[in-house]
Design a protein around this nucleic acid. Structure first.
Lengths: 213, 213
DNA sequence: CCTGTTTCAAACACTCCTGACTTTTTTCTT
DNA sequence: AAGAAAAAAGTCAGGAGTGTTTGAAACAGG
């Protein structure tokens, strides 16, 4: 797990300033991690404060001390998730070398992204938000922010593509919709090795769409 | 509404044989229709026996008379949905002319299919089934049956494509995953006119994939 | 007309979840 | 070391949902 409970460094001594705050933050992290895990493997509607507390190794009262209501947990979890997703995405982009086949690597990166549990969590939330206005109000900003970040990053990674903006937008949308469709489809239909050919074909198509380099 | 409550034809006379059964069937239809509507615009987890009864214009006790438990309603609704979906699909295929641009029309047909409320209902159920084994057991057979039907129909509509089976499978998967991805994405992200260019590009790509005619 | 069956309605008992409240333990300050 | 403050745990009432049971109305057949 990401956040380990901080161990007291010395006997009784207060050690560093604000150890309380530190521990509190760690507990918050535990709760949010537990919430995400719940969403991923129980689904949004089966995620209850009790189950979150259970997975966080805390009592329900403790979690409700840190987050007064369930929606507060969800709100914080969405933010938490958004940050993590952004970070993971940036990390995977950072490692893209300049000289090799960037398209292939980018496809692989986004595929890794959409098959990651974090994406599953976001997906679950998106679906629930379709019929839950309160959740939608929480989720939409994060969605939009991520999309914009994604678009900007893609622009930076493929500067030579900016010559033909229409082709660029098309390629981006194709990537996103197709890969997300595949990920979601496989999440429910169960894949049978139908992913490899499609991904290869996508790469090929993208190569045809990029301006001659 | 699909099923109208049958009106008694004459005074007191039993009229046709099995009037009771007829009325019962009509009520069942009302209930199933209401269930589907609930799933579409409230989501699966917010679909309760009370709300279904309300939308069917019946008391809760009445619906539970026809379907002893909630799962029985869902089971029947899945079947109901599957039949409707198959029928709608076959109807749209039937109208495909032999001489015109079949690919364009097929894309339009499948796009119409995935943007139809029936697809939304199936999608909701699929997502819920991911974390609900009982529902999954109900849903999976229908899913599989539809997929197979789809594959077989596509084979019949594009006989000349069977020469290159690999390309055919690829094209089919591309269609399905991309369009479903788009439909689902637009269901949650809200579209901004990003569909037209993508669909046009898909058509174009499919034309390149089909054996020279 | 009367009896048994089917359809529908209402009431009840039970479970699960949430949010508020109270109590205990741990940590910080002086 | 002692009291204040924060964190964690435990308890409670209320609401929502399911499924069962009881009771009434419409229907079928003798």
């Amino acid at each position: 797990m990401a956040a380990k409970q901080p161990k007291r460094s010395k006997a009784s001594g207060p050690g560093e300033a604000g150890w309380q705050a530190q521990k509190s933050a760690a507990t918050r992290d535990q709760i949010l991690n537990a919430a995400v895990r719940c969403i991923v493997d129980l689904g949004y509607s089966n995620t209850t404060t009790m189950r979150i507390a259970e997975r966080a190794g805390l009592s329900r009262g403790a979690t409700l001390h840190h987050f007064p209501s369930k929606m507060d947990i969800i709100r914080a979890a969405v933010d938490f998730l958004h940050q993590k997703r952004l970070k993971a995405f940036e990390r995977s982009v950072k490692t893209l070398p300049q000289d090799e086949d960037r398209i292939k690597l980018a496809v692989e990166a986004y595929w890794a992204h959409v098959t990651h549990p974090l994406f599953v969590a976001f997906f679950e939330l998106s679906v629930a938000a379709r019929t839950d206005k309160e959740l939608a109000d929480i989720l939409t900003p994060a969605q939009k922010a991520f999309d914009e970040e994604w678009y900007n990053t893609a622009q930076k990674v493929f500067p030579e593509w900016q010559a033909d903006r229409e082709a660029f937008d098309l390629a981006l949308n194709l990537c996103q919709q197709l890969m997300e469709g595949m990920a979601i489809g496989f999440l429910t239909h169960a894949r049978e090795g139908r992913d490899e050919p499609l991904l290869a074909f996508l790469e090929d198509t993208l190569h045809r769409l990029i301006p001659k380099s």
